[in-house]
Simulated scan of single mutants.
Amino acid sequence: MPKPSGRPVYHPAGHDEPLRAVLQDLKAGRWVSTRNLLTETPDWGLWTQRTQILAAAVVGSDVVHIWRAEEPYSTSAAVLHTRVLVERALRAHRAGHRRTNDLWRDAVAACAAASSLSPEDPVPWICLLALAQLDEGQRWDEHRVAPPEPMLFPGPWQLLAEADKRDPGNREAYHRMLQFVYGRRSGGPLTEAYNFVQWAVASAPAGSALHLLPLYVHVERYRREAGNERALDLHWISEDATRGALRALQLWFDHALPTATSLLDLNHLAHALWGAHQFHDASRVFEVLDPFYTVVPWTYRTHSPGDADAAAELFAQARSRCFGASRDTR
């Protein structure tokens, strides 16, 4: 019988214990365990996830630069270096930094170099997809390719195809494309995003994380419409939102290996099921999450969006509500 745990914990590595240990080493400036972990990473999906988390952890340090100086021919070091440059360019863009264009050019060059070193790796193409959102006016030809279906939008479809060819249904690749959609200046309110995720999930097999994409768009809509609390609460029990949550449960959660999945995906699913009053099903997701949580999407249901403590408190309240309802039905 599920029981509410203590205060939820945020950690970027979540249930990935080897990655948690490596992150500790990186904080101390030690990179050897990172090299070993990446060498032993068994598939492109996990490789993508780990390199993204590692880069975010070292974006403000020179540990990868030191590693590359020691092992200049290391493919893993080159890919992580590319990740770091891309993350720096994205952060500079969000901050309106005057060096954004320089950082952007450096990141694009690093993507090309990493792709040459490891042609089968989807990450350099995913990185180019991430950088596409900096081209808000879609000035570059590769960012306004004709879509595969008429209801979709011109965009970096060839970049997505290259990532998809190397790792079909790669979670981050499709999320990067969704972020690109959010940044487009044309189109109605989230219409293009809804069209994109429906297109993506239509051919996704059972167990694919792409089945979570509609939940992210629901959260984005909720975030943009914040202000009318009653209407926002009704948003989550609408037929469309409830159907999306249950489909994600059945087509992803019931087939995936939960401990190897994204914490963000698990949190979005628990959040959607709780919001749809599907408390018993939500309790199953909360059990798998224990003891971890992520600030998003819970923060958007609080009075202080961005406040990690408020998000953790709401997460704990929702978890208790769902575990309580689950016990009552036994």
Rank of each mutant, 00 (worst) to 15 (best):
A260F: 05
F315R: 13
M1R: 05
P12K: 11
P4Y: 04
S326Q: 15
W125R: 07
F286E: 04
G324I: 13
D16K: 12
E17C: 02
A248M: 07
D233H: 02
R327Q: 12
M151V: 00
M1A: 09
N170R: 05
R7K: 14
D106M: 08
V64C: 03
L19V: 15
P147S: 09
A312I: 07
A28Y: 09
S238V: 07
A132H: 06
L212S: 08
V123Q: 02
A226H: 11
M177Y: 06
D106A: 13
Q250R: 14
P150F: 02
Q278Y: 01
R83F: 00
H255W: 14
F279Q: 13
A173K: 02
A282S: 13
R144F: 02
R144C: 09
R319D: 10
W140N: 11
D43H: 07
R223M: 00
A282E: 10
L251I: 03
F153D: 09
L46A: 07
A89C: 02
V181L: 15
P147C: 10
L266F: 06
P148C: 00
W140A: 14
R327K: 10
W274Q: 13
L178R: 10
F286V: 12
H255V: 08
A77R: 01
L213T: 00
P189L: 11
S208D: 01
A69F: 06
R166Y: 05
E142A: 15
E40N: 11
D233L: 07
S116I: 09
E40G: 05
P297L: 11
K3C: 07
L37G: 12
D265Y: 02
N195A: 15
P119E: 13
S326W: 12
Y174H: 14
G306F: 11
A130H: 04
K27G: 14
A132D: 05
A13Q: 09
G183R: 15
A161W: 00
K165D: 01
P8A: 11
A55W: 00
R176I: 03
A146V: 00
F315K: 04
P291K: 09
L117I: 00
D141M: 11
L266M: 15
A109S: 15
T48Q: 08
H65V: 03
H97C: 05
L266N: 03
R230F: 01
A107D: 02
R176D: 10
G275I: 09
M177V: 11
D240I: 12
D167Q: 05
R35F: 03
R68A: 05
L117S: 00
A114W: 00
V201A: 02
D233Q: 08
Y216M: 03
T299H: 06
H303S: 15
T329R: 12
G137T: 14
E192L: 12
N195L: 07
F279S: 15
T259D: 09
V64L: 07
T299E: 15
R230H: 00
V219Y: 02
V108F: 09
S262K: 05
D25V: 04
F279E: 12
F180P: 03
P214E: 04
S5Q: 07
L210H: 03
Q198W: 06
G96R: 06
T302L: 08
L19R: 13
D62F: 06
V63R: 02
R50A: 03
H65W: 02
E120W: 10
T48Y: 03
S118W: 04
Q49L: 10
E313W: 11
